[in-house]
Design a protein around this nucleic acid. Structure first.
Lengths: 146, 146
DNA sequence: GTTGTTGCAAACAGTTTGCACGAAA
DNA sequence: TTTCGTGCAAACTGTTTGCAACAAC
């Protein structure tokens, strides 16, 4: 397991510069919104929240797509199967999602590659990647239910 | 791994009867559409296809939700992250998805429960379930690309 | 005959697009 | 100054809801 540790604004600015992209107040605001949330947001929710700061929905949609491509936002699904995004540490991580409060914890899953090799051998697929999410109830929610 | 083997219409009728639900021509048509496809459909696609048979979109949405609850349709995500549904054998299965043609193969993943126990111990979550999809290129698509 | 289901139409929510203006570099 | 990025508004697509008519059982 890995403790989530979001990248700093300076690092983020650097990532944009490397990619030849501009670092605008809108992009910073979108990142901050996600970086400060343990639960993440659907893009529509984020667009509503950022609308108050005079950032248009189109910008939010474009920016979330950009951050996802850069590997800075990860995609999860909530209990209603809605797409949500959470800030995630770069690299290959998966998410453990609380189905009650929506809190998300990152983890690494080292067992999957073996399964992938087995499947490749048995099915003839050449495996390229995978998506794994685990659902449960976090300890705070279990305490609260008592 | 498990070879997909769809249930018969008679079995399906029985499942509906057990649940106190009616087995209508619309529900049969929705099931047939999915049962005959290796690729599955988004609900919108299914609604378009079934519209030609005078089945309204509302019915398709309601029926797909019903079949999913009954465990007869499984949810996957295509290369554009769009939700798609595929007929699946009852029980706990996962899907291997071809990112080129969309073909879906079911499999069982026996390694996950161990990971779940580890995560439960390390994070304090009580784990309830998981969702795993593996992506790759099927052998037919690899042949075709040569 | 009852009662669950359906089709329709309307309302809605989420998302994308084009383009003139504005602001990073 | 030069692009790239943004806001706005409009257009779409996907999805849900209410209700009268219909068809399983």
């Amino acid at each position: 397991m890995r403790r989530a540790e979001n990248i700093s604004i300076e690092t983020l600015r650097g990532r944009f510069a490397e990619a030849g992209l501009r670092f605008t107040r809108q992009r910073e605001a979108v990142w901050n919104l996600f970086a400060r949330s343990r639960r993440g947001f659907s893009v529509a929710e984020a667009a509503r929240a950022l609308g108050k700061k005079r950032i248009g929905p189109a910008t939010v949609y474009r920016t979330v797509a950009l951050l996802e491509e850069m590997g800075l936002l990860g995609r999860i699904h909530d209990e209603r199967h809605e797409h949500r995004f959470v800030a995630c540490t770069p690299g290959h991580v998966h998410h453990l999602v609380c189905t009650n409060c929506g809190r998300v914890v990152e983890f690494e899953a080292c067992g999957i590659p073996i399964l992938e090799r087995l499947l490749a051998a048995e099915t003839g697929f050449s495996v390229e990647g995978h998506h794994l999410e685990i659902y449960g109830i976090c300890s705070k929610c279990r305490e609260a239910a008592k």
